[in-house]
């Protein structure tokens, strides 16, 4: 019999393979360089947002504002960054710092992160709408050329996803800082007893989340070429679902960067798959939810088997 632990680690990859196989079966023409490129093009911003969410989940918090935040970054990049680059860069740096401040606030006042970030989601959206009341703006040419970069043989989104996953894996899973970050989610008391500052750890993780949120917004803008404050509203749920699909858990510092990226790819593919099935967009969210429930049910099954053995 297969080791349940191994099975659980393999589950995100198996889910991706199943969704990919189903897509190829329904629409064989997607089984090509061009087809995959098209289906997965939005996987890169979703993967970056998922990684941002994963940093927050690592310290047992949840970010309900990442979607509007990604939208705000897109709006800033399409207007300020495009017009006066120096001011644009400063604004994006301020966005990352704002995330750090939010982390500090949540820690110092021991506030529930869900409430704080839910409130902030409206703040981000409000600022974005104020800057850009109706869809418009223009992506800086550099972003456009990065996102349309083509790699021979393997579609760019796949290469980008693997690179993102590998870098974050190295940083979070193998460095000595990564141990402290994950330990903060696993047993904060033990960390405090060992003399580590939970405040510092949390602020760093929130700023990393802010950084990846910015990267997500920029890459999304590179694809859409013009900005819209509402463009990434669904990313909040996508990012949470991606982390969980990828084998992460809401509490306990159990996360997997590679899994999170694979989870994001699965979600992006699931969207395309449902379109090929001619399921109306109204039902897509529900259908994606159903996919999520199936995968989580499988995991629960594996976990209960693990507990028994």
């Amino acid at each position: 019999m297969i080791n349940p632990r191994l099975l659980r680690a393999a589950l995100p990859f198996l889910s991706l393979a199943v969704v990919l196989g189903a897509t190829f079966y329904v629409q064989p023409r997607t089984m090509s360089y061009f087809g995959l490129n098209l289906m997965l093009q939005y996987a890169v911003p979703i993967a970056l947002a998922t990684i941002a969410q994963m940093f927050i989940i690592t310290v047992n918090d949840l970010d309900l504002s990442i979607g509007p935040f990604v939208g705000l970054v897109g709006v800033i990049a399409a207007t300020v960054l495009n017009g006066t680059p120096a001011l644009g860069v400063a604004a994006l740096v301020a966005c990352v710092l704002a995330y750090g401040l939010v982390g500090a606030l949540i820690h110092l006042r021991s506030l529930p992160s869900i409430v704080v970030t839910l409130g902030l989601s409206f703040v981000w959206l409000g600022i974005a709408v104020m800057i850009l009341p109706s869809p418009g703006g223009k992506a800086p040419p550099l972003l456009r050329s990065i996102m349309t970069f083509s790699v021979p043989y393997v579609p760019f989104p796949i290469v980008a996803a693997i690179v993102i996953g590998a870098i974050v894996h190295l940083a979070l899973m193998t460095t000595s800082f990564g141990v402290i970050a994950r330990g903060a989610g696993g047993n904060p008391k033990a960390l405090t007893r060992a003399g580590w500052s939970m405040l510092q750890t949390r602020v760093v993780m929130y700023m990393l989340a802010g950084l990846f949120g910015v990267l997500s917004g920029l890459s999304l803008l590179g694809l859409t070429t013009s900005a819209d404050a509402h463009v990434a509203d669904r990313y909040t749920l996508y990012s949470i679902a991606g982390v969980i699909l990828g084998g992460g858990e809401f509490i306990g510092g159990r996360v997997s960067p590679m899994g999170a990226v694979v989870g994001a790819l699965t979600l992006a593919l699931a969207g395309a798959f449902l379109i090929f099935l001619r399921i109306s967009p109204d039902w897509q969210i529900g259908a994606q939810g159903a996919i999520l429930i199936v995968v989580l049910a499988m995991r629960a099954l594996i976990t209960s088997r693990e507990a028994r053995s």
Partner: peptide, 23 residues
Amino acid sequence: ELSLCPNLSVAENTRIVHRALRG
């Protein structure tokens, strides 16, 4: 009540009490 992080390995838990274990 133990002060170990359940999600980390034994070696990683050792790192938590030793600042010198880095690099």
